[in-house]
């Protein structure tokens, strides 16, 4: 297989991967909705969760989507008493 014939395949793969990554990172709620639709359409739970995220395990506290409570509890101010 020549480089020229591989190039469109690689580009397509990179595009699909980037779309998926952008969806997971920039629109996690939309990703969860798509995941729910794929589950209904018959995609196995494990695969759907891996691809689109699992609502049950989403409360990771990573702070990247703002979907959980952890960032609110880590305020930069320290309120420890003087004595």
């Amino acid at each position: 297989m020549s480089y020229a014939s591989l190039e469109p395949v690689i580009l397509a793969l990179v595009l699909v991967f980037s779309l998926w990554l952008a969806l997971r990172k920039a629109a996690p709620k939309l990703s969860l909705l798509i995941g729910a639709a794929t589950r209904k359409a018959g995609l196995p739970e494990a695969v759907a969760s891996r691809l689109f995220g699992s609502p049950a395990a989403c409360n990771s506290g990573c702070g990247s989507c703002g979907g959980c409570e952890k960032p609110a509890e880590s305020t930069p101010v320290n309120f420890h008493p003087r004595s």
């Binding site: 980037s18 990554l21 990172k25």
Partner: peptide, 9 residues
């Protein structure tokens, strides 16, 4: 992750 994906897109 995010910046890489959006740069590609």
């Amino acid at each position: 992750t995010l910046i890489l994906a959006l740069s590609v897109l």
